[in-house]
Write a protein that binds this DNA or RNA. Structure first.
Lengths: 232, 232, 232, 232
DNA sequence: TAATAATCGAGACGGTACGTCGCGTCTTCTG
DNA sequence: CAGAAGACGCGACGTACCGTCTCGATTATTA
């Protein structure tokens, strides 16, 4: 989501759709009590096209201006040309579906230059900035973000798998900075990390039209590193 | 949301929305609380008790653990002992109602000590922290925030009346700091203001369980004022 | 209603609107417990224009094709430019209003020639036929008739004041016929009266588009008087 | 209503309505009870139990004294334990539902003795008399009748499928009577048929409490056959 | 002349029903 | 057996009227 750092969608991402293959673990739809799962499944196998069709339908709806609250399962099924039961067989509901959609869109983490703490932080912030600006995903993600606030279970899951790892990366960068002497050793690094990422979240979430010019990451990083009080 | 202010809307923001005015169409009646209009209103005046009953019902439902998505107009009306039409006569829908509810709950702005920039900033942050923690308003506000993201008109209104004034106050504090020499004169104060408020927003919105201990405002302020890089 | 014999609406009826004056007895609106009713009423007297405006509004609505089921009190009040409470002050509800409207439209009974039973019966039937055909009142009355079936109290009242008196007249004609030898003395005259009026009701109510040519009354009367079986 | 037949619709009636066909728009599904259409219907078939449950609920409500005006779709659904949408899926509204209900209750036509015109006519009238008296159907049908008056489309349909066939039978009996010499050959048989059925309609519809004793059909038939004027 | 009292238009009020839509489950037929 | 189709019970949606009530304004009679 907007605050998590990511990659520009116009950048190296090969395919904007769902990733190849059906790499899904939490298949809650299989009727419990069936036999061992390693054997070759009997009956008609699940169509590979369904996930793609469903995700495409959701993205198409959201991009065409439909508010996320109006994106009902019924409508997704109609748009995708898919039966409702087929959707419920794979996901437990709209929220579950959306989480997976978001995860599938999430770009891979950026490579850091490692030249200095300052450069690494700017790079992380720049990725977040590009994520927040990305044309198509921006509104979508903001909507999702809003939606998920109301669904704690899914929010937790997203937090665990997306937000927290990136937070870790920022802290690791700072820890390296402490080791090299670039960062004061007497600071709570979790708090410092929030100092860097908070402003970007604020402008992305609360002020979608605000200034997010390319030099924003550098200005934030430099100001925090140097401090606001005049130096003697 | 309430605990963060942002950027000035007259600043670099190109267009604050389709129409900056108060385009509140569905509420054709007088907004309750305003003075007497010119013409003497005809017909039975609206009961003063309805707003109270409705707001109380919503708060009661949310406090009793009902998720905001399940707080339907129907249920509000039932709980408040009020007709649905009476609700729709005053508000255009659930979101509109919630915006007004939040506004009615909004506490008055804090008095600033004025002893120093640092003290004033800590006070502002402390005020925001308490707002985010307040028992009843916390979950409510977080949900509200989510809801409003999808409704630009309401969001604009809330931004104008709640967020923007507070943002102004922060910037004024910083300007005074520049005048007294407590703050570097070469900084973009809007950005600096976001540095202070961003972290609090981040922890409140993204990490509801995170550390929001009483010393958080002071730690944020001191770290940003002093800077992260070691001083020579 | 359509089966009750009456007068042609294009005939001697002087004014199609409500009769002059406010000759209303069943005024249920007066608050019980007030003083003696002969004394001059205090307060503002009821406007004479209200009954007229309300009746006109109802007729206007029905004539403009609005089904009677859609003629709500609300709509009547709106159309008449009258307050709802003003209507309820005079009538207990829609049914009550409609009964009075119908009564006010009901034309006076016809004069009978008295030359013979056959001529009198034809005259009665002819009045019924014209009533059923009357351009504006026809659909209106059919609607009312339908409506009243579902409201026993009002139906009873209408029956007592409109239907039954006319039924009496038919029987009186037949009794005179028995006295003059024009009618068999061994017959149940109530049943005979129904033989004459039934066919007209049938064609008016069940078959609005059916044959109601001017000679219908004569054909009915002559056939029943002569009998269907061939005379020896 | 059911106890009266009327005139042939192909006769002098100029236009039976806007469209003589079966313009039943809202019921897009197969009318239950018809044979298999060409294409094998897809999706879950409509439950057979729903019609029964709904009809039973309506009859139960009416029998327990609920006025038909208070029999709302909402209440029917509640009583039948059925969703509102399920009702609207089959019928376009209350009237449509009631028409089908009445049709389903309609008893089969009587066998005629064929011994004489007089006996056949008495039998037809007796059948109608019993229909009008039947415990459960009586009030229901009277109300139905009232409802349908205001809905031409439904009335047409009922007329076509219920009233008209019965009317035909009566005229056939009379035609046979002309052939056997039991009936005068110079009469308009449609009118004669109305002479017989009209009185029964009159007493059933206009005078629910009137005399409908078992000998009523015979008295009507005999009086009309013999004529009211004394025979020389 | 002023007070009193009932009327007027207007419209808010707590309800009930409307007809539609989406929910998540189910039941059919086709591949 | 998967999948499209769609019926099912349920419940919320936003609207329309119901009949009652409360307003300010109007219009008579009574003091």
């Amino acid at each position: 989501m907007p605050l998590a750092d990511g990659e520009t969608p116009e950048g190296p991402r090969p395919a904007p759709g769902p990733a190849s293959g059906t790499t899904r673990a939490p298949d809650s739809g299989r009727p419990p009590g069936s036999g061992p799962c390693d054997g070759p499944r009997r009956g008609r196998p699940r169509s590979e096209g369904v996930e793609r069709a469903v995700f495409d339908a959701v993205v198409e709806l959201l991009e065409s201006g439909v508010p996320l609250g109006d994106v009902s399962i019924e409508r997704i099924a109609r748009t995708a040309g898919v039966g409702k039961a087929t959707i419920y067989r794979r996901w437990s509901g709209k929220e579950d579906l959306l989480v997976e959609l978001v995860r599938s869109i999430e770009p891979p983490d950026p490579e850091l230059p490692g030249t200095s703490v300052r450069d690494d932080l700017v790079m992380l912030l720049e990725f977040m900035r590009r994520r927040g600006l990305a044309k198509r995903t921006s509104a979508l993600l903001r909507n999702m973000f809003a939606q998920m606030q109301a669904h704690p279970r899914l929010w937790d899951q997203y937090h665990r798998t997306v937000i927290e790892p990136r937070r870790r990366r920022g802290i690791e960068v700072l820890e390296r900075g402490v080791a090299t002497g670039e960062v004061r050793a007497d600071l709570d690094l979790e708090l410092v990390n929030d100092l860097f990422t908070g402003p970007l979240l604020l402008r992305t979430v609360l002020m979608p039209d605000a200034d997010l010019s390319p030099d924003f990451p550098a200005r934030v990083a430099d100001t925090i590193l140097a401090g606001v009080r005049p130096r003697p």
